[in-house]
Design a protein around this nucleic acid. Structure first.
Length: 296
DNA sequence: TTCCAGGGGTAGA
DNA sequence: TCTACCCATGGA
């Protein structure tokens, strides 16, 4: 038990900042990112129903986490928070086989050198599903806006203004649909989101079981949800450690055209064919290509 | 005004 | 399986 939080040791290949910056998730509440301090914060709703502001920073040979709102840290809460941090940063991924496989390919040395490949996710699959749905068929700025509005429906922090946890499925399911849709302003996506929340709340979907599925089964399960197609299922699969699908969206098309296809837009089959050479790592290589391309 | 963004559902061939 | 057409929203 400690008021200053705890440290989770990490393997040498782990890079906190690279993980946080692995995609746009750090911009979506209840995450906030302080780039100058290198601190990631997350409004976390504990199993006991308390909303806490969890702050996570890089530390020598590990990551350090603490509650920035002086909330008391009990032993069981610390265990819960440790699990959440491990999940969010995908700390338990072993990327050694990925780096080893990529040594056979030219122009990808930077992956291992820069310890890239680890991806930031939410503490719950429900939250990631909801967020991925909010990336479909809209600009990124709209995704951020919709997510912000969605989060306002979550349980509020007791003494930090405008700080809410991500809304639980039950919290959404308990709302009137029209009120929900008017709050989130997610267009036709609102119905898909509301339906998903309802199914989880009623126990018709067990996302805990989904976490134990293999790549093909998880992909299929996500695609069975309304509003989730190849892109969304591939994105979720990638975030949960399965890289044998390519999540093709406009960002992928743009990157592929400019980086691999002489500025000409390629077909979906062109893209799939190009990445086949990376076998089970193809989905991760494609995403790293996007991130690399984006950073240039 | 039209187009489009980290797409996807559906009807009809 | 493939193709149109439709879907709410907000910024350009």
């Amino acid at each position: 038990m400690s008021d200053i939080g705890f440290i989770i040791p990490t393997a040498p290949q782990f890079d906190f900042q690279r993980t946080v910056l692995s995609h746009g998730w750090l911009m979506l509440p209840p995450f906030t990112w302080d780039g100058e301090e290198g601190a990631l914060a997350y409004a976390y709703e504990s199993a006991a129903g308390n909303v806490l502001r969890l702050q996570i920073c890089g530390a020598p040979d590990g990551v350090q986490a603490h509650l920035s709102d002086s909330a008391p840290m009990t032993e069981s809460l610390e265990a819960e928070l440790r699990r959440a941090v491990r999940t969010m940063l995908n700390i338990d991924w072993d990327l050694s086989p990925f780096y080893a496989a990529m040594r056979a390919h030219q122009s990808y040395e930077w992956l291992e050198e820069e310890r890239r490949g680890r991806i930031l996710i939410a503490p719950s699959l429900w939250e990631d599903l909801a967020k991925v749905l909010l990336t479909t068929n809209c600009s990124w700025s709209q995704t951020v806006n919709m997510c912000r509005q969605l989060c306002l429906l979550g349980a509020p922090h007791p003494n930090i203004k405008d700080c809410h946890a991500f809304p639980s499925p039950g919290r959404i399911a308990a709302m009137d649909f029209d009120q929900f849709a008017e709050s989130v302003r997610a267009g036709y996506r609102s119905a898909y989101l509301y339906e998903l929340a309802g199914k989880i709340a009623k126990g018709e979907i067990d996302l805990g079981a989904w976490l134990r599925l293999d790549s093909a089964a998880l992909f299929k399960a996500v695609k069975s949800l309304k509003g989730f197609g190849d892109y969304a299922a591939g994105t979720i699969a990638r975030m949960y450690g399965h890289f044998d699908h390519i999540a093709i969206d406009t960002a992928c098309h743009t990157m592929f055209a400019e980086r691999h296809n002489g500025g000409v837009k390629g077909s979906v089959d062109d893209i799939k064919t190009h990445y086949e050479r990376f076998g089970p790592w193809r989905g991760l290589v494609m995403w790293m290509d996007i991130m690399r391309h984006h950073g240039e």
